[in-house]
Design a protein around this nucleic acid. Structure first.
Lengths: 251, 251
DNA sequence: CGGCGGCTTGATCCCTTTCAACTGTTGTGG
DNA sequence: CCACAACAGTTGAAAGGGATCAAGCCGCCG
């Protein structure tokens, strides 16, 4: 029994056995290519809560994929003001903003005990020439990041506090579902402080928004434990639109 | 005299003669590679004000680089609400968000009479395998886009109207300077309506912020004509920090 | 138990939104 | 060429929502 678990664990250590393989770098690669990728990836680095994976200004060594847990990336200004610009869940890539000049533009901290895979940049460059499907996949995932940046723009521009929180929760739940995690009842790892920073609101305002959503019966929440009771009305409040574009024309 | 001008014009049509070559795709490429790139690029497509280059939902044919003029990219929801998520100046690439699934996620309209170069996606893929420096350069520029998404996040989260406008003007001027355009006195092509949408503010609020900045002597402005009188105090108001990261640690 | 940190709740103030009127420019047609 | 409409932008006054300051709650850990 125990040995079987260990074996399963061994299998999960390689990309082809990883739960995230459909979402992560292996997606779209041939089995042979995945094996090759496997050789490059430094697997299962364990990071504890609040531990830094890297800091803004560091020379970039690798790009990273979340295996288990979650991370925040943020900027910190000289005057001490900080801004969280991204939350990363399993299957998602980060550190991509460093590809422009080999130097990290954000700092990344674990929100909970987490595992990451790292793909060293040196290897990535060497291999991408003879394995175009890999660099294509990196490109695809970077492009997806661009779109989530646009999501953020939409979230922050001209939306009320309640809408921001509701929209965040919808998207967070969707992303959890997408990577095979429980999506209607879970621990949000992210603190009120971080959440309010990310959403461009005050801590107290976020707290009040949670209260309103509780009173409306959409959710129950205490501390970071969240339960989504009525997703569809939560989406209504959020002014949620899945942005499967439907060829709508401006003007 | 006239023939000389025509010749110069001819030279500028090719990447190696283009004013934007230091900023755009040719940057970091060998002369031979630039010539090869030149074969692929569909040059000098002319787009008039408000004309669409593509629309959200369109199958992506190419990625684009601004040669002259400027563009806005925006999302449009079914309920008619739209959100501008990017402004593109000469030397900048756009359409990169379509690389994830070959389908444009935003619509792009010209803000003024403009020229674009288009690099067909089919060609890009075919060539990037044998010309890794090109795909690397595309990657670099996409990564830069990611960072400007983070800039936007910082701009929108928890900043007053005046700060947002001042910061936008600083960045806009910097970007103009960066691509060789006049940076202290120029026509902003972008309307108050579009600007307020982009900044997540009401039109009237943006107007009042301009007035305050005028009264402070930082700028003069009428309609879209702008003159920056005192850039350093404009930066102060914006809470501007050049984000050359200086190894500052969080906490 | 006591103290601390993370979160919640309350009261007040201020900035942005909203609604409305006005100015000035551009473009069209008689 | 002027009258007029249409439009972009400005300004004013009132209303509302989030920020701010302050106090209280509660789970956790020494």
């Amino acid at each position: 029994m125990t040995s079987k678990l260990i074996q399963l664990d061994e299998v999960r250590r390689i990309c082809s056995g990883c739960n995230m393989r459909q979402l992560c770098l292996p997606a779209g690669l041939q089995p042979g290519e995945i094996n090759e990728l496997d050789q490059l990836v430094q697997k299962r680095r364990r990071i504890k809560t609040d531990e830094y994976l890297f800091r803004a200004g560091d020379v970039a060594q690798a790009i990273y994929a979340v295996r288990v847990g979650s991370f925040k990336s943020f900027r910190l200004r000289e005057d001490g003001v900080w801004q969280i610009v991204g939350i990363h869940l399993p299957g998602e890539l980060f550190g991509l903003d460093a590809l422009a000049d080999r130097c990290h533009q954000v700092s990344v901290q674990a929100l909970e005990t987490s595992n990451v895979c790292a793909l060293p940049l040196a290897d990535l460059e060497a291999v991408s020439a003879r394995m175009p499907s890999l660099s294509k996949q990196v490109m695809r995932m970077t492009s997806r990041e661009l779109n989530s940046g646009h999501d953020n723009h939409e979230l922050l521009a001209r939306r009320s506090a309640q809408e921001r929180v509701a929209l965040f929760l919808c998207r967070y739940a969707d992303r959890r579902r997408n990577c095979g995690l429980q999506a209607d009842s879970f621990d949000m790892a992210i603190s009120r402080q971080d959440l309010s920073n990310y959403l461009g609101l005050q801590l107290e305002t976020v707290s009040r928004a949670f209260r309103q959503l509780k009173d409306l019966g959409c959710i129950t929440a205490n501390r970071s434990l969240l339960e989504i009771k009525d997703l569809s009305s939560l989406r209504d409040i959020a002014g949620f639109c899945d942005n499967t574009p439907d060829y709508a024309y401006h003007q």
